[in-house]
Every structure is written in structure tokens, then in C-alpha cells.
Amino acid sequence: MTIKDKIAVQIDDLTVAYNYKPVLWDIDLAIPEGVLMAIVGPNGAGKSTLIKSILDIIKPIAGSVQIYGKAYKKQRSLVAYVPQKGSVDWDFPTTALDVVMMGTYGSLGWIKRPGQKQKKAALEALEKVGMLAFKNRQISQLSGGQQQRIFLARALVQNASIYFMDEPFQGVDATTEKAIINILKELRKAGKTVIVVHHDLQTVPEYFDWVTFLNVKKIATGPVKDIFNDDNLTKTYGINYKVSIQQ
């Protein structure tokens, strides 16, 4: 892979603290356009926090984030977000289609209601994730994998350039995992940048082309084939980590 010249996300000196307890320290990170990147690290390494502070959900105490050279607030429309599945109440009275429609709310802005155009986009996204047949299902009646697909569809509707996903493979079945990764690879092919908080180290070389090791500090970042090695894994996870890398 060639080094990409255009930078999608530029993070400088980012420091985040929860209740003034440090979570992320002095992170410098440049994510090139068009990569499919995994963020890996042990529990409590600050992976979700990194994504949330890029998206301005958490206020950092120092540092700056730029999306295509401008502050996030000006570039919202370029960014889509898939939160952790456990972060919402799935017993909420709403249907799959309705959740996917929420992806269009950002572009609609205040007060304006979604119309036919938005509905069409939502149906297309549902089709893409293979959930069209379930569009009128109450969301609590969906399986974990189906709920994750709905979340992905909601992000797809946003039609963004950069996708942030917080553990999209957590608690999903094998079929869904395949389906999701295929969609992510398609997105990359279309020139989009996809950033995924990931847990399963075994699948990193198979799924991703770019990786960031994170444990409170940034340990390493770059192409999977160059930096996904025992040395960086040990530095990140603290113990002598061995992973068989199939390449």
C-alpha cells in the first residue's frame, strides 16, 4: 500500500480526562483518507474515548481535532457514527426503519421532518445491510446481530466520508460479522475512511489495512502489514503477546 497523501482526520496533542483522571495522553494521530483502520488496545485503554472526543461528545482538556483541515463542528456532515450497541435502550418504542431514518436527521437540521426522499434513502440502507424484510420490526424483537446492522444502516444513510464505529462486532453472529466487514470494505473501495474500535486481534490482518495501537498513549499507527507485530502488541498489552499473523 502506498502512503496516502490526503489526511482525513488530524489529531494533535489530544489529552482527555474523566473527572480529572487521565484517560488519553498527548495523542498525535494522522489518519489518511481511504483507510480501513482498527483501533486496538486493552480494556480501559481509551479507545471509545478517543472516538468520542474526536466527535466532540467528550470535551478534551487539551489538543485539537481536524476533519479534512477544519474543526469538527464545521465538518459534521462528513462524519457518521455507530455507537456501541449497549449504549441505547433497545426496548424503546420504535421500528427498525425509524431508527435508520434517524441518520437523516442531521442533514435535515432543526424542526424539518423527514419526507419521501429520506425514507427512500433509509430503505436503501436497510437493503444494503440485508434488513429490508425487518423494516417494521420493533427493535427489541431483533437479534443482537440485526440490531448492529440497523445501527450500521443508520450510519450509511448519513452518506458521510468518514465512519467511526465503536465495537461493531461485539455480540454479533458470524454471518453478520461477515456482512458488516463486506460493507466496510465496500466503503473503503468507494474512497471512504472507516475507523473501527476493535477487540478481536486475530481478525485484524484479515479485515483491516491500517491499525492504531492505543493504551492511554498512542503506541503505534500505520499499515497493518508493517506494524502489526509482536513487538507493538507487547508494548500495547503489557505482556508478551503472540499472535499468528497470516499474511
Binding site: 496533542d13 489529552t15 480526562a17 473527572n19 480529572y20 487521565p22 495522553w25 498527548d26 498525535d28 482538556i61 487539551a62
Partner: peptide, 20 residues
């Protein structure tokens, strides 16, 4: 305490930045 910790965290951030 939050104010104190806040500035101390900032200090630490700054020192680490210098080190890096």
C-alpha cells in the same frame, strides 16, 4: 479539588508534551 486537579492535569499534559 477539581480546579486543582484540572490545572495539575494540564501541567502533566504539558510536561509530557515537552518530553514527547
Amino acid at each position: 479539588r477539581q480546579r486543582q486537579q484540572r490545572i495539575e492535569v494540564l501541567l502533566l499534559t504539558f510536561l509530557l508534551h515537552l518530553r514527547n
